[in-house]
Amino acid sequence: MITSVGVFVIFFWAVLQALPLFGLNLGPLLASAGIAGLAIGFGAQTLVHDFINGFFILIENQYDIGDNVRIAGVKGTVEAMSLRHTLLRDEDGTVHFVPNSEIKIVSNTTRDWSQLTLRVTVAYSEPSDRIVKLLQEIGDEVRHDPAYAEDIVSDIQVPGIDRVGNGEAEYLMLVKTRPNKQYAVSRELRRRIKECFHMQNVQTPGPGRMYVVDQDRAS
């Protein structure tokens, strides 16, 4: 190996010495080689940074394929990952190739469990205890429904009123679900809340208006 390197160095030096004999000016050639070397060096530096970041992302298990994350200002689902880059697909279906060197902070919304926060708005005149009881009953029904029991990791909580104003009151429902299951659970809760409020004649903030907002989606 050392002999081969030595032969190459001697050959390269001999070529450089022979070029002026053929009327070739080494100055521009060496300058171009220097500029090319700098460009390659900067490119290699970024590439090395990509690989180092990618290595730690994989070793520390910061996220995995299928996780919903926010990295480098982009939010989406991880579809592929390597030492070089991470591929995300956002809610619009757009695919983003994010170089690992651009990832400074990782926000993983599907690690271990997901938090679903529903804000249910009704008329101010509705008795608070009645609304809390109805929402808790709906939460318990969904929690023990075989179709959703495995997706909800703990009892659904209804802390009570979170906001009052403009003739309306806003109640909170807090739900912990398995990763990526909060959307299906949210849709079912909203469906049951609508049906229940209709059957129980719960007054809404205005005619034909009932607000059940998923805080994650609202943000």
Rank of each mutant, 00 (worst) to 15 (best):
residue 40 I to S: 09
residue 201 N to Y: 08
residue 9 V to H: 03
residue 119 R to A: 09
residue 117 T to Y: 08
residue 81 M to L: 14
residue 78 V to S: 04
residue 56 F to D: 11
residue 48 V to P: 02
residue 94 T to V: 15
residue 17 Q to R: 10
residue 127 P to K: 14
residue 99 P to L: 07
residue 96 H to T: 02
residue 71 I to T: 08
residue 78 V to A: 02
residue 136 Q to I: 07
residue 111 R to K: 13
residue 129 D to P: 06
residue 158 V to L: 00
residue 71 I to W: 07
residue 131 I to F: 04
residue 36 A to S: 09
residue 143 R to G: 05
residue 78 V to M: 03
residue 118 L to P: 00
residue 74 V to A: 12
residue 60 E to A: 07
residue 87 L to D: 13
residue 77 T to C: 12
residue 155 D to T: 15
residue 173 M to P: 03
residue 135 L to C: 01
residue 132 V to G: 02
residue 187 R to Y: 08
residue 192 R to Q: 11
residue 173 M to R: 01
residue 207 P to K: 00
residue 179 P to C: 03
residue 106 V to R: 02
residue 11 F to S: 11
residue 61 N to I: 02
residue 81 M to V: 15
residue 113 W to I: 08
residue 152 I to K: 05
residue 219 S to G: 09
residue 188 E to T: 01
residue 141 E to L: 00
residue 105 I to F: 12
residue 15 V to C: 06
residue 175 V to W: 04
residue 56 F to L: 09
residue 78 V to P: 06
residue 8 F to P: 02
residue 158 V to I: 11
residue 140 D to C: 08
residue 140 D to T: 15
residue 69 V to R: 02
residue 116 L to F: 05
residue 148 Y to C: 09
residue 198 H to D: 10
residue 61 N to F: 05
residue 216 D to V: 04
residue 97 F to N: 13
residue 32 S to T: 13
residue 197 F to C: 02
residue 161 I to M: 14
residue 161 I to C: 05
residue 185 V to Y: 06
residue 192 R to L: 15
residue 140 D to A: 14
residue 214 D to C: 09
residue 199 M to L: 15
residue 169 A to K: 01
residue 202 V to Q: 01
residue 128 S to L: 04
residue 123 A to T: 10
residue 130 R to F: 10
residue 195 E to A: 15
residue 135 L to E: 07
residue 184 A to L: 12
residue 31 A to L: 05
residue 177 T to A: 09
residue 160 G to R: 01
residue 39 A to M: 15
residue 92 D to S: 11
residue 60 E to W: 05
residue 163 R to H: 15
residue 96 H to E: 05
residue 49 H to C: 11
residue 213 V to D: 00
residue 97 F to L: 15
residue 54 G to E: 06
residue 26 L to D: 05
residue 36 A to Y: 12
residue 70 R to L: 12
residue 214 D to T: 05
residue 127 P to E: 10
residue 81 M to Q: 08
residue 81 M to T: 15
residue 167 G to C: 07
residue 181 K to G: 10
residue 114 S to A: 06
residue 159 P to Q: 05
residue 130 R to W: 06
residue 49 H to M: 12
residue 169 A to H: 04
residue 209 R to W: 11
residue 12 F to D: 13
residue 179 P to W: 00
residue 3 T to K: 13
residue 150 E to C: 11
residue 92 D to N: 13
residue 129 D to K: 11
residue 168 E to D: 04
residue 69 V to A: 03
residue 10 I to C: 13
residue 150 E to R: 10
residue 149 A to E: 13
residue 128 S to D: 09
residue 108 N to P: 02
residue 97 F to R: 14
residue 4 S to W: 14
residue 51 F to T: 12
residue 3 T to M: 12
residue 80 A to R: 04
residue 158 V to N: 03
residue 70 R to F: 11
residue 106 V to L: 11
residue 146 P to I: 08
residue 208 G to N: 04
residue 120 V to S: 03
residue 53 N to E: 07
residue 169 A to R: 03
residue 113 W to C: 07
